[in-house]
């Protein structure tokens, strides 16, 4: 480790912009971006399953509020949702005195809430589309076996919907990664935040932003590769049989 650092330091000796300090900004930024995106996706995914089922419910009082939620969060820019939550919570009376403030004080949490609500709305609609397109035959077969509607949902509809939703969900993951760049607007030092810092300090737009663009590109490819792999595994039964 020690020798690696000295090596790196020597490599950077003639470089006034990419010093160890700025590189550590980028490294911290990478960690923050990955944490923020990963956490919001996981929580959003968990929330989206019941919401997607509820969205197809026969009861208006379940169906319509969920529809309104997804409509509003998908119909407005994430930036506005972030501003609303980041600046809005401050004006809730007495919030600074409550225990909640300990959590909301840090810009990370308001951003996480905004991102989670946003991705949950999109994921809900993706799942709903997948659930809706379940073939009638599968459901009828389950019924014929004497499965209850709940069991049919758990054993038949959800697993097959998950698979069908996979390609669209992969796009959503990439979308979230890119959307997370706006976290820098509320002082979070994510990847884009690090780039803005380096740019403002050295007036070096090409170095600062091209470098960060390359990191995002690598992350995007990693996600693409992961989902391709997953699709191949989970959707193998839909591929034409060979041999």
């Amino acid at each position: 480790m020690e020798s690696l650092l000295t090596w790196l330091e020597n490599q950077l000796a003639d470089n006034s912009i990419f010093t160890l300090q700025t590189l550590s900004h980028y490294a911290d930024g990478l960690t923050t971006t990955v944490q923020l995106v990963f956490l919001s996706l996981i929580i959003g995914l968990i929330a989206a399953v019941p919401l997607a089922i509820g969205r197809g419910s026969r009861h208006a009082w379940i169906k319509w509020p969920i529809f309104a939620y997804t409509y509003v969060f998908r119909g407005t820019p994430l930036l506005i949702q972030l501003y609303l939550i980041y600046y809005g919570v401050v004006f809730v009376d007495g919030i600074q005195e409550s225990w909640l403030w300990v959590i909301l004080e840090d810009p990370f949490i308001p951003a996480l809430i905004a991102f989670t609500l946003n991705t949950a709305a999109y994921t809900t609609e993706i799942f709903r589309g997948a659930i809706k397109s379940t073939s009638k035959g599968e459901i009828e077969a389950a019924r014929a076996y004497g499965m209850s509607p709940g069991l049919t949902m758990r054993r038949i509809i959800i697993p097959s919907a998950f698979r069908r939703a996979l390609p669209a969900y992969g796009n959503e993951v990439i979308f979230m990664l890119h959307a997370s760049a706006i976290a820098s607007v509320v002082t979070i030092m994510d990847l884009t935040g690090a780039a803005r810092f380096v740019y403002a300090r050295y007036y070096a737009p090409f170095e600062a932003f091209l470098f960060v663009a390359a990191i995002y590109l690598c992350l995007t490819f990693a996600i693409l590769y992961f989902f391709r792999h997953l699709e191949k595994k989970l959707l193998a039964h839909l591929q034409p049989q060979t041999g």
Partner: peptide, 13 residues
Amino acid sequence: INRYATADDMVLD
């Protein structure tokens, strides 16, 4: 260190 685009943002926080 929290860095802001404008002084207004900073005062609000």
